[in-house]
Design a protein around this nucleic acid. Structure first.
Lengths: 203, 203, 203, 203
DNA sequence: GATGAATGAGACTTCATTCAT
DNA sequence: CATGAATGAAGTCTCATTCAT
């Protein structure tokens, strides 16, 4: 009988293979054959660990989201200022972005066909991915900041991800410290002023 | 012989059906049967107008991108200030880009399998979508603005699209004027200061 | 109103186009689109002259077989000897072989699917194509020739067609007088002796 | 894991089913569904053994051609005279070549659409099928025989195949010994005389 | 009569899933 | 537990035939 560790390994190998394949081709175009081959197991073995392609996909999302959130939270806890936050977000999203982004893209397209239980799990993942940025911003935004945190978080994450994405698509060697600097330059002023500045600016 | 207009209509009907289906399911999961049914034509008719599913997808992208760029350019030409630009971008991307964004998401996954000629066409689409924001920013950014326009454009577009996307995903009734206001509040300060401010801020 | 001649022309144009296409691709792979384009008419027009692809095919076979038989009979009537016969057959089959052969090949594969009435017409064509060689041989074979004429005809026709076919396939410039000479050299002796020679040879 | 023999069997079953279907209907009209049903396997199984219909067709040709050539060579090696050769050829082509001939007929129509690599393989098959008759004739033809062996081979093969074909088409019970006798009677004299006889005959 | 856009049955092929070994 | 051969539903695409113009 195989011991517990071997089973864990197999499970992890399959998830890693699935990540590679889903990331590269998207959910619909990914083939279980490819995942099996990449994982170095037989096709039937996949079904010993995951009931279906859809379950494999969702459990992969859950695993990666959890890891990502844990990492991000740990780093953001150390942040001393809004500038720190932006720097950390830019750096970590820069490192993790490509894989996660590609996975995330599959969600909106694929999930509508999933059974309800899986759809619910995906919904939870989405919520979880929002929170770290949101929590960090809450700590440092001016108390009277007029834009709600969830939407400010969307703005910040969008800015970072697109900038990283453009660099990657253009094939440029991505210099993360540059990305962080650009992000800080553009976003910091707008994130640092309270409502009275707004009023001032409007007038 | 059917008259010219009828043919044009059919062509447009199919593109609209394709837009709906590709947008909803992504390229790989979209079925030609669904597109045909949505367009109200027989399966074979699709192939009278587009040689293959891939060609239909790319020509849809081209058509929508062209429309989008034309509209955006026209509006941005009227902008009198950076605030105007951000407002226009937020409003139009909110109206037009949710769909296009979904289409765009399919690209990175699907296009690698396409024949080279189609890949090249997609590449051109990507370039075209970047330009309007870039051109508008060039007009209003301070002369000594330290972040290159292409990357500033990425930051702006990303902020807008994510914000719109979050609103849509959350199922909120999207109030575009709110979106525009939030965007202006967060981004405007950082886009308005020249290099000397940067130096000041750093110190 | 179009006059009779124009209708005849159209009919003939279509048959010629069909001959070219069926000859090139075989019955099953031939497309009505190609035949229409080759004939310079619209696809629907084909169906004004021939009820279906199968009918078009069979009527083409009938037309060409009739022409071929008429021509062959006329020439063979002039033959003064077995050598003449072989020379004439080699020359004419050499001229007509490629087209007819290709058409004939389609028959055995395609006809089983045809409706019974068309099958019967094809059967008649086959009989008709055999007869000229058979009739000519009957005139010149020794009275006591032991091999039945229909089978002798098969041997003669097979020898000629394969020889021409090999030349064509090898891409050689086919010299018909050479073909005729070879055929005569190989076949004439065996066709010229009566049964007593056979007995002699056997002993 | 299924044992090696079972896989071999399946492979052979499919080839036999393919032979039956391609032979009956020709390449273009043959349906993979029919081949699968005839072989007693599911449609998808065919594609585990052969990458496409075209590949299945070509590999069938290769297999049968190889068997045929091997058998023919073995028998012809034992021939003691030209009469033996003709008898052997008539008998074996009668037994083995009706099927192969039907396959061969598909080649000229279907192969032009094939990818270049498959075309090359078919070309090699054609060459291989020519050689046995040619080699045998070279041993027994008079040294000064004026017709080149490759063309003499074409004449002999054509005569045999047509005769067999006519018998089959007429639905006659084919008596192979009769066929052999007829062939020998017609062809032997012409194949036995050297060039001086030719000169004599011409005068 | 002539056209050719439209149709839809049916072809090839793929791939998630199963199950005997 | 692990395997991978087998399955068959479902996808893309073709093409003979029809019919409104």
């Amino acid at each position: 009988m195989k011991n517990e560790d071997t089973l864990q390994d197999r499970h992890r190998d399959i998830l890693e293979a699935a990540e590679l394949v889903f990331t590269t081709r998207g959910f619909a175009a990914a083939r279980m054959d490819d995942i099996a081959e990449t994982a170095g197991v037989a096709k039937g073995t996949l079904y010993l660990y995951f009931r279906s392609k859809q379950v494999l996909f969702v459990e992969l999302l859950e695993t990666r989201a959890e890891e990502y959130v844990t990492t991000l939270d740990a780093y953001l806890r150390e942040a001393k200022s809004l500038a720190d936050c932006l720097g950390i977000l830019a750096t970590l999203r820069g490192q993790l972005f490509v894989k996660n982004q590609r996975l995330a893209e599959s969600i909106s397209h694929s999930v509508p066909d999933f059974p309800r239980e899986l759809q619910w799990r995906v919904w939870n993942i989405r919520r979880a991915l929002q929170r770290p940025t949101e929590k960090a911003l809450e700590r440092f935004l001016p108390a009277d900041y007029p834009v709600p945190p969830s939407q400010t978080a969307a703005i910040v994450n969008g800015a970072i991800d697109y900038l990283v994405g453009v660099c990657v698509l253009d094939g440029e060697q991505m210099v993360l410290s540059e990305v962080a600097k650009d992000i800080q330059y553009v976003l910091l002023p707008g994130l640092s002023r309270g409502r009275q500045d707004w009023a001032a600016n409007e007038s």
